[in-house]
Design a protein around this nucleic acid. Structure first.
Lengths: 294, 294
DNA sequence: GTCTATCATATCTTTTTTGTATGATAAATG
DNA sequence: CATTTATCATACAAAAAAGATATGATAGAC
């Protein structure tokens, strides 16, 4: 069975007259008769009752008529959807988001992009920066918001946000009490620390202490931000993580870390030298526009 | 475009290798290359990225792969249904199930129906309500369980379940702490919201707030229930979605929304004004009987 | 540098579809 | 009731499409 056959069948079912149908289809009548005969043979069912001077659909014929229209409509819609896709109006954008501020940053882009491109859907992939970079390398995702640093050979980037690394500690912690709104590295050197497990972060934090000729007491490297907060909340120690104000609850407070520049950058990244889909290109343009207007 | 072409395309899309595909299809490789080339010409889009030694599907190719399988399945089911038409005792029932409680509801029907009609097989199609309605409109499926509302011109319906819309939020969220087991709309008005992308849900939620003279701060519309939960888990904001207890995990909690009637209805629906197969008719009767006996 | 795997192109062959001619049937017409 | 007309079916030729064979191009693998 081919789509051509179904098209022919539909016209005949509507006209109930092979000759007229053949004129509409601009082919001759005998081939049309043949096509229907072959279709009936293939389905092992009569589709028409050849009565007297007029055709009539059998029950099977009526059923096929509906389904044939469904099938052809589905085919047509598929064609036009693919056309929309190739114009960059429709599709799915998969974007990796690191924990922290990234989902918040991206939510803004997504909601404004959706107004312009209502047919586009989003798929969010979670993970830490290293996970996401690995997923980009393997081609699983093409777009992401991660924290610096990153592989500049592999990825293009735009800076889209900045955040302080701060110390999280429970209200009842002895360092929480003092009146300063920052903690010194000397104070931190005596505390058990919970820090992000990303290698570059560990290195950075070690460097801070090395400058002050101290050794950090890292008791726990955590992948997950929320778990780290939970540990700080239980007074296991002080967590050093990006501030991200909206996750704070009442029992935990954050303090700046004195003496050092503890900023981390959020970067929107996409794969270099790799053919992106047209929607992805449009989305990147959109982000560039948003970032530049600020 | 013909069905033959789609069959060929599917095998190539699965093998990502024209030579292997040609062996599976038992034709030679050059005509296969040609068919794909013609298909691409017809659609005015590249379906494969010819990279180095391996083929890769483009976004358009991936889309066509899904649709081509839908189309061929519809054709096969139509053929076999025409075969079985007079019997009504065997065949395949395709039913769409929305995420949430629908699979649970349908499981009951299916198991009791199978006792009565042991030769009938089921095929379940997943998707959100809008997807499923779209598939019903396009004739891909004739039966589904979706959430209200729906197009009453297109579909007949029976109410088969009800569930609350609730707010999902991370344990550490400041609104999670208070002792009430519900959240007021005033509280929600200040929060970033993640809500189902379905238009009617957005409208409903806006109406809730309008009654209280507030404006909701919708930061993300998500198609996918689990992704929405993931974002809530990341404290991007509060997700408003149907409760469905079995997806809850330990770090996320749900709260009722005060002041409003936030129920959503589950409906069993089937296509209006369309001749269904005899098994499908039997299945609808079965469901009516089950629902009425409760 | 040669070999191998893979896809593309060119050309010929086969199959399928379409067209033409014609026959069969039965309702409409005079 | 014979003739005309409308309609579908069958037979066979022509055209188009699909498939096969041979071969070329390219880029990893060896």
């Amino acid at each position: 069975m081919e789509l051509r056959t179904l098209k022919y069948f539909i016209v005949i079912a509507e006209e109930l007259n092979i000759t007229k149908a053949s004129k509409i289809l601009m082919i001759q009548q005998p081939p049309l008769s043949n096509q229907i005969k072959n279709l009936e043979d293939e389905l092992k069912t009569k589709l028409f009752i050849r009565g007297k001077r007029q055709l009539k659909l059998t029950e099977e014929g009526k059923y096929l008529y509906q389904k044939a229209k469904d099938i052809l409509r589905l085919v047509d819609e598929t064609k036009s959807e693919i056309h929309n896709m190739s114009l960059g109006l429709k599709g799915v954008i998969s974007i990796g988001l690191v924990e922290g501020m990234a989902p918040d940053i991206a939510a803004n882009w997504i909601s404004s992009f959706m107004i312009k491109y209502p047919l586009v859907k989003f798929r969010v992939i979670d993970g830490n920066s290293d996970d996401l970079i690995e997923k980009m390398r393997s081609g699983l995702i093409s777009l992401a918001v991660i924290t610096a640093p990153y592989d500049q050979i592999l990825l293009n980037s735009i800076k889209v946000g900045e955040e302080k690394m701060v110390a999280f500690l429970n209200k009842s912690h002895h360092l929480a009490d003092n009146k300063k709104d920052f903690i010194t590295l000397d104070e931190l050197a005596n505390e058990p620390l919970i820090i992000p497990s990303r290698k570059t972060h560990i290195d950075t934090i070690k460097k801070w202490f090395k400058k002050n000729r101290k050794e950090p007491n890292i008791v726990c490297e955590m992948d997950n931000y929320l778990d780290a907060i939970a540990l700080a909340n239980r007074n296991v120690g002080v967590s050093i993580f990006p501030k991200t104000e909206y996750v704070l609850n009442s029992s935990i407070i954050s303090k700046d870390i004195g003496e050092i520049n503890a900023n981390i950058e959020y970067l929107f990244v996409w794969r270099k030298g790799h053919q992106l889909s047209i929607i992805e290109d449009n989305f990147i343009d959109h982000i560039k526009a948003v970032v530049n207007h600020k």
